[in-house]
Design a binder for these strands. Structure first.
Lengths: 151, 151
DNA sequence: CCTGAAATCCATCATTT
DNA sequence: AAATGATGGATTTCAGG
């Protein structure tokens, strides 16, 4: 992992379908050299894969919410994960500091669908209480760029 | 936008670098037909683009937080967005219902970096008060799949 | 709106420095 | 580790149904 790898990652974050030759032009390497590095980054897990960015609105997933989840007693993160994973509306979940045990990011088709998703979430045995915050508008959403400079 | 488009999107979400020929085999179309549909989906904005999924840990961005932002008086979402956009640690931001005006998703290299990012955030004139929740572990994080069924 | 063919370009491997 | 050159496969354009 060095500067060249980071620049390759930047290229792929910007456009995952760009050719190795094009990336090579940017970073100053030949196509096979770029491929070897990308393979290695995938191998080591720095790159998890490549995905399409879709507009949730266009697909009918325009409603979302953040839900603070409070569990009963002490529960292992893995157990929370296991319960959340089958729910298709859960797009992300994190254990957190503070009063809540986890924050769950939900995406649904509309308010009604969000409500049913919330009901299912609250129906999980491990969950004691939830506090939900409905998203009114997406202000900003961007991929984590590898070249941001701490400080 | 029909079922075939959705299945093409599913393929690209699963792997943005798969070839048009491979997608065609899955959805029962020739490679040129797939390409034209993908071009149209990009054109109409249903597909925003293609990106690499990177492991934040591996890049040294292992610390994150969700911050409730409370603003002074009534502030247009666009103004909030304009203030947040220059901060590189802000990976997402939403206006929300409830007491807070916005939720900001921060990603930083470590706790110290997170602290400085928070200070910068709290230094914005429009911001009155913040409540931050530090992420302890990522339980789940997945792309929005286009084929989840409401209900 | 699709298929099928043709030209170009790319990915990928073996070889060389 | 990277450049180079060869080849098999992909992308992309175009003609035609």
């Amino acid at each position: 992992m060095n500067t060249i790898d980071q620049r390759i990652i930047s290229c792929l974050v910007a456009n995952a379908r760009s050719s190795y030759a094009d990336i090579g032009k940017v970073v100053g390497l030949s196509a096979p050299a770029v491929k070897r590095r990308v393979d290695r980054l995938l191998e080591t897990g720095v790159l998890r894969g490549f995905t399409a960015v879709v507009d949730p609105e266009a697909l009918g997933w325009g409603t979302e919410a953040f839900v603070e989840v409070h569990c009963q007693g002490n529960i292992a993160p893995a157990r929370i994960r296991a319960r959340l994973e089958p729910l298709p509306e859960v797009v992300a979940a994190y254990t957190v500091s503070g009063a809540a045990d986890a924050i769950v990011h939900l995406r649904a088709a509309d308010i009604h669908h969000l409500e049913t998703a919330l009901e299912r979430l609250r129906g999980l045995e491990i969950i004691d209480r939830t506090v939900s915050t409905v998203v009114l508008s997406r202000l900003l959403e961007r991929p984590p760029t590898p070249d941001r400079n701490p400080e």
